[in-house]
Design a binder for these strands. Structure first.
Length: 209
DNA sequence: GCGACAG
DNA sequence: ATCTTGTCGC
């Protein structure tokens, strides 16, 4: 299935103007997956809305197969959005995947939506380590560049930016940079992460823990 | 054969 | 991801 998805991935820009950008993140609580999506105005990063979907974990954690663990919940959360974003930022890799089908690319194909994958560690690919603040180094996988390592803050490890779907190496770096507001993680993912944590706390309270 | 391995 | 201990800095 991943090979089939991987063949459908487009690595050129498939968007006009971005007015809304989304960020997706999942957290876990007991046997549940809590998936959260936030939508922000671009490039002001002004909050627009958030949705959540909570479901039972249906697939184990296996590196390389994230889509099957966090995909369903993320898509259900996406369907609940009143304002569909022009581009979605995902907390996972995109085309730096053995089958060209990391979660960011996979969900982009399924939703037919431009996506960018952001991770804290490299899964596939090689790159020089950027040292200076704001320095970016190309990330190669196979023979092509598929993303970047970006040293956002001088005191923290660089983030990994990868092309998801309907985006290019050039645009995924430009867009990610415009989403940075003084923190290591770009706003869509930082806010989505915070929202997921709040939902978990809320759930724990109402179910007695 | 052994180690590494997105969240 | 989650959990835990400890340190640094605004």
């Amino acid at each position: 299935m991943q090979e089939e998805i991987g063949r459908q991935v487009v690595t050129t820009d498939g968007f006009e103007n971005i007015k809304l950008i989304g960020g997706a993140d999942c957290t876990y609580f007991k046997d549940l997956v809590i998936c959260c999506i936030v939508v922000l105005k671009y490039p002001t990063m002004e909050f627009v809305e958030r949705t959540v979907h909570i479901g039972k974990i249906s697939f184990p954690y296996i590196s390389g197969f994230f889509s099957f663990r966090e995909g369903e919940g993320t898509i259900r959360a996406y369907q609940k959005l009143s304002h569909k974003p022009d581009l979605l930022m995902i907390n996972a890799c995109g085309t730096t995947h053995p089958a060209n089908a990391g979660f960011a690319s996979h969900i982009g194909v399924v939703l037919d939506k431009p996506t960018i994958g952001i991770t804290k560690r490299i899964f596939c690919g090689r790159a020089k380590i950027p040292q200076k603040g704001n320095e970016a180094q190309p990330l190669y996988h196979g023979r092509k560049q598929k993303g970047w390592l970006l040293k956002v803050l001088p005191e923290t490890k660089p983030i990994v930016i990868t092309v998801g779907h309907l985006t290019s190496t050039r645009s995924c770096l430009d867009i990610t940079k415009k989403c940075l507001k003084g923190n290591k993680m770009p706003e869509p993912l930082r806010i989505a992460h915070r929202c997921a944590g709040e939902e978990k706390k809320k759930w724990g309270k109402s179910s007695g823990t």
